[in-house]
């Protein structure tokens, strides 16, 4: 069975794309709004014809926190909510800069990284 024929729900399809290095999200064929996280029905209008597309990857930090952690356990890290240009919000982490430099409004680009073989969406400050 090739990838295209494989039966999977939206959660699995989303993760498979991430594992292949691609971010895909859904758009509703009825109300035209973007949807995240991946679902079988649209939470905005209730329709069941969602389809996948690749967002541009531009966004900004909607809110942010630094989770404090001891140096032995890896040190402090960023957890944020990013709003993509397509209108959806998702939890992520801004990598590559010190967590205390991540502020609300920071412009970011999404990036898919691999951790233990699994794709993960993170962000880099622009």
């Amino acid at each position: 069975m090739n990838e295209a024929q494989q039966v999977s729900g939206p959660e699995e399809a989303y993760q498979r794309a991430l594992d292949a290095g691609r971010l895909i999200i859904q758009r509703c064929g009825e109300c035209d709004r973007s949807v995240f996280y991946p679902r079988t029905i649209c939470p905005h209008c209730g329709a069941n014809n969602l389809s996948w597309f690749s967002p541009m990857g531009d966004g900004h930090v909607y809110s942010t926190t630094t989770v404090r952690r001891s140096q032995e356990d890896g040190g402090d890290y960023n957890v944020c909510i990013v709003e993509l240009a397509e209108g959806v919000r998702l939890m992520s982490s801004v990598r590559g800069i010190s967590p205390d430099r991540v502020i609300i409004g920071t412009k970011v680009r999404t990036k898919v990284v691999k951790i233990d073989g699994k794709g993960l969406l993170v962000c880099e400050a622009k």
Partner: peptide, 10 residues
């Protein structure tokens, strides 16, 4: 919470 958990919010 599969879309939040990987970022380890405390």
């Amino acid at each position: 919470a599969p879309f939040d958990a990987p970022y380890q919010p405390f």
